[in-house]
Design a protein around this nucleic acid. Structure first.
Length: 582
RNA sequence: GGCCCCGUCGUCUAGUCUGGUCCAGGACACCAGGUUUUCAUCCUGGUAACACGGGUUCGAAUCCCGUCGGGGUCACCA
């Protein structure tokens, strides 16, 4: 279905519930909502759906704002937020959010009065009604239906007396006793037009009279979402396909609700996006992280003892015996560190910590369920692009219909090229920001050689976290380098003259190199080899072994420059002493 | 189980609406070569898919029906 020409600019919204960091699936939803608004000169609203008092918390809400800012997804209306320097593309940018249209507040918990107003009118018009069954009674009825192999559907009892029910509602309001309000689902099929999926008809007998006001007085998601979308002028609802079955409820509510002046609610354009799964087809769940750590902990014999510094015995036992239980993120992190486990990345924060760049993440995610459908000059499909491109070309009609599996390998490939594409100085400062947050020791360890370390690592890593690998030799003490016997044999013992002899000879030359920087070092090695009419490898490989213990390392100049002249000479001396044949 | 959605290489996908240009193109991964002082990068080449069965048609990945498979959802969670 083509996107209809838009007379008025669209308004999209992203409406997470603040129960933790932003889930990777939510990122894509937010990204598309934002891109769609930008593409058509509309507005992007961020709303916090905190109507579940038990699960919502303000730290999580704050975390989600940070996550979005880091990704460079800027909201026009919503909670105010000042991006910090490390917050990706939005860092040091203008303040995010605000309420220039006067449609806030944007936390649903602050809008209770609004919902109650609409709810009252619904009850008054007999489009909704109070219900007094207890949770136990409902559970019993469900069990009964289950036994008959039927799906339980709530509907108003035939002997329901409205006057008596309203009286009871009034009494309970006075007495502060709980009850719920249910919506009268109309007895007719509901048609939904979806920009991705097309026309869908939901037969009336499959949706029951659902709760719209909970016993604690809060609205349910269904009521709140419909009222807020209307009041905030939302024209396009992009969300995951898991919400498809909720849509007839929302459409029915839109038909029933009216503004105080009598005007009707409008139905927005819906676009339900395919879901994202793990490679094995399972759901990408925050619990995956707990699952993998729990498995390791259960398998380790002395696990309990090793866990205790990180968590109380009580919490641990509860967590170990209940598969649905989650440990606080920090605890999980320290346990993972304790047992050397790589946690699967699920939330934005996980990917950020693992050293993925927001550029790569956004690019990869945009491709999960959407393609620009354009070619590069060489005829290959265009799939590397930035968010500016996305904002210019995103369209609902090119959203796919089938679910996707999340492929970390491809993400890593995107990340690697994003890293490689940075100018050296930009990469160094990107890595520095990352280290500041996740690996300050590394920053400390390299000191004024940090930029060189970044330069050596840049072409060799897929994630920022991997930066220790190619330059790890520089973090080992000179006398702690372990010489790999195979490398020693190949590079130092073979040939005539052998590598050790080359090293002994080159020592003097190296000692004279000044300044001791990659370019000068490379030049010295080159000149040395040319003067003897031999290949660079004859000297380069022995040097590698002497400095790093193995035969793989960054460029020679970088490798030597990273340890510094004193260490380089010391390592060569030690190698000469300890790696003699026999 | 009811309802709803989906089904092209291992994975993400182009192509499906408007049937022929598709013995199906790209990307990631994998394999083989090449460049390079090692590694990484880079370059070249290769393996690999229209779920199945009917139908419509001169012709089907593309249209129709059925089967099978996958997913979502059936809460006082969102």
């Amino acid at each position: 279905m083509p996107d209809t020409p838009l007379i008025t600019p669209p308004v999209t919204r992203f409406a997470p519930s603040p129960t933790g960091h932003l889930h990777i699936g939510g990122v894509r939803t937010a990204l598309f909502c934002w891109a769609y608004a930008r593409r058509h000169g509309g507005r992007f609203v961020l709303r916090i759906e905190d109507t579940d008092q038990k699960r919502s918390n303000q730290d999580a809400a704050r975390g989600i704002l940070e996550d979005l800012a880091w990704l460079g997804i800027a909201w026009d209306d919503g909670p105010e937020f000042a991006p910090a320097k490390g917050d990706g593309p939005a860092g040091n940018g203008p303040r995010l959010g605000g309420d220039s249209r006067g449609v806030g507040p944007f936390n649903q918990s602050q809008r209770l009065g609004v919902y109650q107003e609409y709810l009252d009118r619904l009850v008054e018009a007999d489009l909704a009604y109070p219900a007094f069954e207890t949770a136990e009674e409902l559970a019993a009825m469900r069990a009964e239906a289950q036994a008959r192999k039927e799906t339980y559907r709530y509907s108003r009892r035939a002997d329901y007396e409205r006057a008596a029910a309203l009286a009871e509602m009034g009494r309970r309001d006075e007495a502060g006793e709980p009850y719920v309000v249910r919506f009268c689902m109309p007895n007719a099929p509901v048609h939904v037009t979806d920009a991705v999926l097309g026309e869908i008809e939901f037969a009336e007998q499959h949706t029951d009279d659902f709760v719209i006001r909970k016993a604690d007085g809060f609205p349910t998601y269904h009521l709140a979402v419909v009222i807020d979308d209307e009041l905030m002028g939302v024209t396009h609802v992009l969300r995951g396909q898991e919400h498809l079955n909720n849509t007839p409820r929302h459409v029915a509510l839109q038909h029933a609700l009216t503004h105080p002046d009598g005007t009707a609610f409008r139905t927005p354009v819906y676009a339900h996006m395919p879901l994202i799964f793990n490679p094995d087809g399972s759901k990408m769940s925050k619990r995956d992280k707990d699952k993998i750590v729990r498995r390791v902990v259960k398998a380790e014999p002395d696990a309990q003892a090793r866990c205790l510094p990180h968590a109380t015995q009580q919490d641990l036992d509860a967590w170990l015996s209940d598969k649905t239980r989650q440990l606080p993120p920090e605890t999980l992190l320290s346990l993972a560190a304790e047992f050397g486990i790589d946690l699967p990345e699920i939330d934005v924060e996980d990917f950020r910590r693992s050293g993925y760049l927001s550029e790569a993440l956004c690019n990869y995610l945009a491709l999960l369920g959407w393609t620009p459908g354009m070619k590069n000059d060489d005829g290959t499909d265009l799939e590397r692009f930035d968010t500016a491109f996305l904002c210019e070309h995103f369209s609902l009609e090119r959203i796919g219909k089938s679910n996707a599996k999340f492929d970390r390998e491809k993400l890593a490939a995107f990340n690697q090229s994003a890293i490689a594409a940075f100018p050296a100085d930009v990469f160094a400062s990107t890595l520095r920001e990352w280290c500041l947050r996740y690996d300050p020791e590394l920053l400390e360890a390299f000191g004024d050689r940090f930029d060189l370390a970044a330069r050596a690592a840049q072409p060799r890593i897929k994630t920022l976290r991997q930066c220790r690998e190619p330059i790890g030799f520089a973090l080992t003490a000179d006398d702690a380098i372990e010489f790999d016997p195979k490398a020693v044999k190949k590079a130092l013992h073979k040939g005539e003259p052998n590598g050790l002899a080359m090293l002994a000879e080159f020592r003097e030359t190296l000692a004279a190199v000044e300044p001791f920087e990659p370019e000068q070092i490379e030049a010295a090695v080159k000149a040395f080899c040319e003067s003897r009419e031999m290949g660079m490898g004859k000297l380069a490989q022995p040097l590698r072994v002497a400095i790093t213990g193995g035969n793989v390392s960054p460029g020679l100049g970088e490798t030597l420059g990273l340890v510094g002249k004193a260490s380089a000479l010391a390592r060569i001396e030690r190698c000469l002493r300890e790696c003699q044949p026999g």
